[in-house]
Amino acid sequence: MTALQKTITAERIKLRRSPVWLAFFGLPLISAFFGTNNYRMNQGILQNEWFSLWTQHSLFLCFFFMPALIGTYCSYLWRLEHSRTNWNAFLTAPVPHFALYFGKLFQGVLMTILGNAWVFSLYYVCGKFCGLNSPLPKAVLSWFLCGMLGGIVVCGVQLTISMWIRSFAIPIGIAVAGGIGGMFMTNNGWGLYYPYSLYAIGMRANNPNMEIPLGQFLSGCVVYILICCIISVWKLKRGEG
């Protein structure tokens, strides 16, 4: 078993029987319920079928709730390390520091992907419930993949912040503020340079023509993910947690 596999297994053991997945299950459910309800009440104006339904599902979820939800999960991943003297045990584990970090990142990314898949499953089910008989647009795959990448960026940033700040609540506050700030940045045209906007941009939230500058978006995501990984591993190597 490689060091990375060991840390992934260790993280999985730490998360066993934790209710954290309930949040990823429950909050998108509330969002989908109300988004669909709003779509049904305004079907006279919202005539673009799947695209219109998506506007109702994605807007607040992407800017407000998903960053906060990912932030909560990342805080939870570091929670155990911040309690008592667990940093000592964590940093003296017989595995390289990068493996310690990537073990956590792997869990965060996995949950982000599953959460995103759940959001899209709900979108499909709600569309069928609303009587949308046309096939799901092919572009949905691109929204999902780009959203997933944007979510990984938020996950990377939040993991770094949660590692740095020894509090459970403050990184979540930062995620809430970051998500709302993302709306401000996107509306001013700076969204591609701001990590918390990338999720919403990828998901095409509040984007009437559903197009994005893909090259810039991808490079933005890669740069932010790399920066977060480098900072986090560097911080772990310094042994300060």
Partner: peptide, 8 residues
């Protein structure tokens, strides 16, 4: 995590 998620 539980109260914070309820807050959200």
């Amino acid at each position: 995590m539980i109260p914070l998620v309820i807050g959200l």
